[in-house]
Design a protein around this nucleic acid. Structure first.
Lengths: 162, 162
DNA sequence: CTCCATTAGTTCTATTATAGAACCGTATAT
DNA sequence: ATATACGGTTCTATAATAGAACTAATGGAG
C-alpha cells in the first residue's frame, strides 16, 4: 500500500514529518551545506538512484524548500535553498547536535559545524525562547492552539477527555 | 531493493537520519508527548499497522530511545522515553517550530507546546550555544571533526580538494 | 466459574516504493 | 566530428508498507 501521509493533520510535527520523514530529504539538504547544488553532484555524492533523486528534488521544489534555477540554457539547473529551506536547516542542526552527543564518543565527533563567515565553531542548541532554557530541561506537553479545529470530536480524539 | 542506510557514515546528520528519517518514528515520539505509552494506544491513535508499529517500537528500543517496561505480567508493556529519547524531543521541537512558522498562517497554529510543569508556553528556537544567536542567522558549513576518518580519500570524497 | 474484552503481538497478502541499471536528448568542449 | 557532461526518463526486481485476519494470555464482569 501507499505510504501513510500526515499532511492533513492539524499538527506541525505531522506537517514536518510529512516532508522530513524520509531518509533522502535530510541527506539532500545536508549536501547543500557542502555547496552541492546540481543534480549530478547530489546523485554522485549521495549515491542515490536518479529517478528517486528527481522525485525528491521535485518534492522539495514543490514544497518551497528549494528553488530550481536555470544557470545554462536549456536544461542545466541549480537547486538553491529558499528562505523556508534555510530555516529548515535548523532542524538539521538539531539532528546533528543530537547524534553528535549520542551516536559518537565524547571528543570523537566526525563532523563539526562552522560559521561559514567567521570560521568559528557552531554548537546548535534547542532552547525555549521565552525562558532561554534548553528544551531538554523541559517536560513538553502539547495543547490546542488557535488554529486547532473547533470540534469536540477532534479535541477528544487528540487530547482525550480532559 | 532495500532501503538505503546511512548508519555507517561518519556524520551525525546521517546517523540521525538513519533513525529519524522515517515517517513513523517522529509520529510515535510525538504521541509520547500526549502521554501515550502502550502498544494499543499508539496503534489506535496513529492508525498504524500493527506489524509496522511492532517493528518501529523494536527499532526505538534497540536504539535506546525507548525502553520497554513490563507493567503487568506476563505481556503488558509500557514504552517510556530514555534520556536519549527525551533528548531527541528537541529535534521534534525544532520540527514543530519550523512547521508552525511555515505550514500555517501566523496566529493560526493548531498546536502549542507547553511546559508540563508551569503550563507556560514553550517556543523552541535553535541557537548557536557559543554566540547565543539563532542558527537561522548563520551560514552553516560542515568540517571534519576529531573523529573523522584519517584518510586522504575520505576527506577528498566528502570535502573535495580544498 | 464462565464468558467476554483488553492487550500485545504474529501472520498473511496485495500493492507500492525503492534501488539499480540502461537509455535518451541537448549542448559545450576537444 | 566526436566525445563528454548534464539532467533527466524508463525499465525491472525486490523489499517495505498497509491492511486485515488471526493467536494467546490475562483480568474483570456477571
Amino acid at each position: 500500500m501507499d505510504r501513510k501521509r500526515f499532511s492533513n493533520q492539524p499538527c506541525p510535527i505531522a506537517q514536518a514529518t510529512d516532508i522530513f520523514g524520509d531518509w533522502w530529504i535530510p541527506m539532500i539538504l545536508r549536501e547543500t551545506l557542502y555547496g552541492v547544488d546540481t543534480f549530478s553532484e547530489f546523485q554522485e555524492r549521495l549515491d542515490i538512484s536518479r529517478n528517486i533523486l528527481n522525485q525528491r528534488l521535485k518534492l522539495l521544489v514543490d514544497n518551497g524548500i528549494l528553488s530550481k534555477e536555470l544557470y545554462q540554457a536549456p536544461n542545466r539547473f541549480k537547486y538553491v535553498l529558499t528562505q523556508k529551506g534555510r530555516s529548515a536547516l535548523s532542524i538539521l542542526a538539531a539532528m546533528a547536535a543530537w547524534a553528535n552527543q549520542w551516536a559518537f564518543p565524547e571528543g570523537e565527533h566526525p563532523i563539526r559545524l562552522l560559521d561559514a563567515e567567521s570560521g568559528e565553531p557552531l554548537v546548535p542548541l534547542v532552547i525555549d525562547q521565552r525562558s532561554g532554557e534548553p528544551m531538554e530541561m523541559k517536560e513538553i506537553k502539547l495543547a490546542p492552539g488557535p488554529g486547532f479545529p473547533n470540534s469536540k470530536e477532534a479535541l477528544r480524539r487528540r487530547f482525550g477527555i480532559e
